[in-house]
Simulated scan of single mutants.
Amino acid sequence: EGLSLEMAGRELRYNLWYYLVKKYDFQKIALAHHLDDLAEEIFMKFIKGTGKRGLAGIPIKREDLIVRPLLFVTKEEIKKFALERGLTWREDETNKDLRFLRNKIRHILIPFLENNFNKKIKENIRKTAFLIAEEEELIEELAKSNFEEIKFSLEGDIALKLHELKQLHPSMRRRIYFLTFKSAGIPLFRISYSHLESLENLITKKTKGPVYLPGNFLAYRGPGYVIFTKKLFSFPYFEMAIPEEGEYTLPNKQVLKVSKALYTKDFVKPEKSMCFSAEKLVFPFIVRRKKPGDKIYIPSLGHKKLKKLFLEKGIPRYLREDVLLIEHQGKIVGVWNLYIHPEYEITDKTKEIIILRIV
């Protein structure tokens, strides 16, 4: 995904730590970030462009799992402590490589500022970062409260209520974007200002979208919501006969599970599924992709073009190719989570149902 060597290494390290936590049931992971790292991080963020969150620097704890007990101690203080106790000090050779921005800040920018402006610049940065972090904590709680009110689950993906989101101040929206990224599993440290700007343009209709995000995610607008989901890859036209219950691998590598169940009034429809009356939808039937001229039946109106249904439901053009259709006896009886032929719907008289579920 075009990651820098430094960014890729950081992502691998965090992935390893979370893997070790799960494998060995660790309660905490203590990292050795120190005050010099904090100062370098803030300068890096400032040079690349950042907001208040970035100026808070490295958090002293992360998700109550990662802690940084040495964050307010300088590298020289740590080195002195180690050498006084006969410990061997090791220096990573890559720390001297000036091809990396962090090393330019460490060996050129900070020494220049200390020699020409303020010898205590690291300590002053620590104080500033601490004050900003305290304010951030308060604002973050407000953002979490708003986030809980406007988020909802849509077919297993996280979505935000569009009207309510637009009522919030832009700065609060940006914080909610970050909470959404975290909830969806989007790598936070790979988010840039351009991603946030693109989301704002999507919300305010300056662009149609989608917005492509790190980690093979994308965001797009639906009717009354904006959704964050794994990037979809279109597959060519296909038809797949479904002769019986079982699991069927689709061209996009997703698995379609087909099963029957007795219908009761307390039945709860599973996520990422469609349900039909088993008295009407009988084997075999076909699952396929759309093709030119497809139509659906609407009571009192007759037949309607599938394209018109997509327009009415606000389905973006770039998502239409991936919508599954269910065909039975030559007619479309289902458009994935958009339409069910009235004769195939579940009613109070239904005794058995067929469940199609993406797993």
Rank of each mutant, 00 (worst) to 15 (best):
I139W: 12
L324N: 04
F72Q: 07
E135P: 09
K308V: 11
Q167I: 11
M240V: 00
E137F: 13
G9M: 08
G2N: 11
L325W: 02
H303P: 06
E345M: 15
I296Q: 10
P236D: 10
L101E: 12
F72M: 07
K151M: 04
Y297F: 15
L5E: 14
Y18T: 09
L12I: 12
F112M: 04
N116M: 12
Y318H: 05
I354Y: 03
F81R: 13
G49Q: 06
K182Q: 09
E271Q: 08
A32L: 12
L309F: 04
I353M: 11
F100Y: 15
Q27D: 14
A32F: 11
G222R: 05
I227T: 03
D348Q: 05
K257F: 09
I78E: 10
E91Q: 14
E134K: 12
K291C: 08
Q27I: 14
E77L: 05
P316Q: 12
V359Q: 14
K52C: 10
L109M: 14
F147C: 02
L35H: 01
T88E: 15
K208Y: 07
R317I: 06
T347V: 03
L262D: 14
I315W: 00
K331T: 14
L281Q: 01
M7D: 12
V359P: 07
K290T: 13
L98Q: 01
R53H: 13
I227V: 11
E136A: 09
E1C: 12
F217S: 09
E11P: 03
N118R: 12
N115V: 08
P292L: 07
E247P: 00
